[in-house]
Design a protein around this nucleic acid. Structure first.
Lengths: 209, 209
DNA sequence: GGGGTCTTGACCGATTTGGTCAACGGCGGT
DNA sequence: ACCGCCGTTGACCAAATCGGTCAAGACCCC
C-alpha cells in the first residue's frame, strides 16, 4: 500500500477506515464495492485506489489494523490495571468493557468487520492473519484472569465462564443493534453493567459485597 | 406469489426458503442476487421467478414465514408447558432453547435473516411486518414469565433480566459462528446449558436446588 | 506563475444484475 | 403411440455495476 496514507490527517484516515469497515461488515468481500466505500467516506474512488492498490490490499490492511487496535487497547488496559493495582474481577471487566464501547464509538464497524472477516468463506486473508487473531483471543482472557483476585468468588464458580457469559451477552447486544448513535452505545453499556452487577451480587462471597 | 409453490414437496420448499434466507442473511437485500440463491438451492433462476414475481416478493414472503414459524414454535411450547404443568423457570427456558436450536438445525439462516431484515436500511419491508415482529418479541417474554414459578429465585433477582441475559448470550453465540454442522449446534446448546445451570445454582434459593 | 501533491470524476472492458421466455422432459390419460 | 399438461431449464436481454486507470483539475507553498 501507499505509505502516504499515513500522512493524511488522522480524522481522514479514520473516516476511510471506518467507512470501509462498515461496508465490509455489511456485505461479503466480493459483494462490497469500492464505490460504496468511497461514497460513504465522501471520497472519490480514485483516491482509494491511490492509497491501496487493490480491494484485497485494503481489506487485509483493515484486518491487520483492527487486530492491532484491539491488542493495543487491551495492553493499555492491562498496564493501567497493574499501575493502579486493580485486582477486582468485575471492576476490571467493567473498565475493559468501557474501553470496548469507546472503540465502538470511534470505529462503529470494527467488531462486526473482524467477525465477518474471520468467518469469510473465500480465504481472502492469509492464514497468518487469522492465526494472529486466534492468539490474541486465547491469550487475553488468560492473562486477564491471572491478575484478578478470584478468591472473592463463591466456591464452584468458574471465572472463565463468567467472562465468557458477559462477553457473549455483549456480542449479542452488538449484533442486535446498529450501534450508531452515542445514546445507543450508552444504553448498551448500561445494560452490560446491570448484568455484571447482578452476577457480582450473587457470585461473590457475601463478605466482598 | 404463485400459490403452487406450496404444493411442492416440503423438502423442496424448505430448501428454497433456507437457501434464500442464508443468502439474504449474508448480504444486503440489494447485493443479494437471485442467481446465488438459485445456485445454492440447486435450482434454476427461472424457477425462482416462476414462484415469486420479484426479489422483493420473495424477501417479504420469507420474513412473514420466519415470523410465523417463530410464533408457532413459541405457542406450541407454551401449550406444552401448560399441558405438563411445567412451572420451573430454567427447565422451561432450556426446553425453549432446545426448540430454538432445532429451528437453527432445520433453517440455519432464519435468525440471522430476521435480524438483518429488521435492521435493513432500505425499508424493503412494510412497517406492518416490522411491527408484527415487535409485538411477538414484546409479548413472548411476558406471557412466558407469567406462567413460571418465580418464588424460587432469591430476593432481588429480576427474572426478566435473567431471560434477557441468557437470550443475549445465545444471540452472541449464534452471531459468532456459522452454525452449519450438527455438532456445532450441539456445542452451542451445551454452552447455553452450562451458563443456565450456573445461573440456576446461584440465583435460586437453596431449598430449590 | 511554476512545481509538486492531493484529489477528482469520466472512462474502460468485463462481469453481473433482475427478469423473461421458448423449449424441454417426464408423466398420466386415452 | 400420441397428446396435453406442467414443473423446470438455461440461454438470452438490456441495463446496471464491477474493479481499476488516468488525464486533468484543485490546491498549496515558494
Amino acid at each position: 500500500m501507499n505509505q502516504k496514507f499515513f500522512s493524511l490527517p488522522t480524522e481522514r484516515q479514520d473516516l476511510i477506515r471506518s467507512s470501509a469497515m462498515l461496508e465490509f461488515g455489511a456485505n461479503t468481500f466480493k459483494k462490497t464495492s469500492a464505490d460504496s466505500i468511497a461514497k460513504r467516506a465522501g471520497v472519490s474512488k480514485g483516491l482509494l485506489f491511490h492509497y491501496f492498490k487493490d480491494k484485497r490490499e485494503l481489506y487485509a490492511y483493515l484486518f491487520q489494523y483492527a487486530i492491532d487496535a484491539c491488542m493495543e487497547a487491551f495492553n493499555r488496559q492491562m498496564e493501567r490495571m497493574s499501575y493502579f493495582g486493580e485486582t477486582d474481577f468485575f471492576a476490571a471487566l467493567e473498565r475493559g468493557h468501557k474501553i470496548k464501547m469507546d472503540m465502538v464509538r470511534r470505529m462503529p464497524g470494527l467488531f462486526r468487520f473482524v467477525m465477518r472477516a474471520y468467518y469469510e468463506r473465500d480465504s481472502v486473508l492469509s492464514p497468518k492473519l487469522r492465526k494472529k487473531l486466534d492468539d490474541v483471543l486465547a491469550q487475553s482472557t488468560g492473562s486477564f484472569l491471572a491478575r484478578m483476585d478470584l478468591h472473592k468468588f463463591k466456591d464452584g464458580v468458574d471465572p472463565r465462564q463468567v467472562v465468557r457469559l458477559l462477553t457473549l451477552s455483549a456480542e449479542g447486544m452488538l449484533a442486535e443493534t446498529n450501534a450508531c448513535t452515542a445514546e445507543e452505545i450508552d444504553r448498551l453499556f448500561l445494560e452490560y453493567k446491570r448484568n455484571a452487577d447482578m452476577l457480582r451480587r450473587f457470585l461473590y462471597k457475601e463478605e466482598y459485597l
